[in-house]
Nucleic acid binder design. Structure first.
Length: 261
DNA sequence: ATGGTAGCGCTGCTA
């Protein structure tokens, strides 16, 4: 089973790119973030034509998350457990069972600056993610929580730790929130195959960051033990961070993890 | 060089 996650920075602007990429990579499950559209605008027919069932959660021109699956998609849930999706201010998590795996696609708040109210909201959101998992599944099941976490797990995951000091994405509190997810029973599947670091999933659009190697690994596929034990390989598709056929890329590259069936 | 890029939607916000 091939599971991928990709912050596409507007699905409307990126749809042809995403279609092309799906045809090339053939993921079984694809988690998308920053679709930047409402549910009514989600192009489910395009995915259906490619053989994918989908669920989307978007309620404005910001945020928006989706799951596309060609191995079944049932028991979809928009938002955190116990929330009324119509009352959720920001659409940042959607979950569904794809094959035997309970999948969530998450777009963690950016946080903007350490100490700001947005930063507190980010930490609270991550704590609620742990609570959501506790309420909806168990770590002895196959669980995959995939998405843009806006946190680099450790210093191997940023181009220059010194340059990032004091910034969001690297603070102790953010990393401890990820560790709380790991204590619940999730493993950073990409890390299993890349201990040395230096591989990133996001590069700022500005200043030629991609070509300068100025990036961070903030897009993660966190999996429970039954899946971690079956992980075969993991990669960042850097080619998808480059223009193709005149189509401009997202500022994130897709992360793809392969699991034995 | 207090900039730079991209997407939203139409003025400035978000990342």
């Amino acid at each position: 089973m091939r599971i991928a996650t990709w912050n596409v920075n507007s699905l409307k602007a990126r749809l042809s790119f995403v279609e092309s990429w799906i045809g090339e990579v053939q993921p079984d499950v694809l988690c998308l973030q920053e679709t930047k559209m409402k549910d009514a605008a989600f192009p489910s027919g395009v995915f259906a034509a490619l053989g994918y069932e989908t669920v989307h959660f978007g309620n404005s021109q910001w945020n928006g998350v989706a799951i596309a699956s060609r191995v079944g998609l049932v028991s979809a849930q928009q938002g955190f457990d116990g929330e009324d999706p119509s009352q959720v201010p920001e659409a940042r998590i959607v979950s569904a069972t794809c094959g035997s795996v309970r999948v969530s696609s998450v777009y963690v708040p950016n946080g903007r600056s350490v100490g700001s109210e947005h930063y507190a909201y980010k930490l609270d959101w991550l704590a609620r993610l742990t609570t959501h998992l506790e309420a909806t599944c168990t770590p002895d099941q196959p669980v995959a929580v995939c998405g843009d976490f806006n946190v680099a797990p450790d210093d191997r995951d940023v181009w220059d730790p010194a340059a990032c000091t004091g910034m969001t994405h690297v603070s102790s509190a953010e990393r401890e929130a990820l560790e709380a997810l790991e204590r619940w029973g999730l493993t950073d599947s990409f890390r299993l195959f890349h201990k040395d670091g230096g591989l990133y999933s996001w590069w700022d659009y500005q200043g030629g960051s991609f070509h300068k190697g100025i990036g961070m690994r903030i897009d993660l596929v966190l999996v429970s033990r039954p899946l971690a034990d079956r992980a075969i390989s993991a990669l960042v598709d850097r080619n998808a961070r480059k223009k193709r056929d005149g189509m401009s890329p997202s500022d994130h590259a897709p992360v793809v993890v392969e699991f034995a069936d």
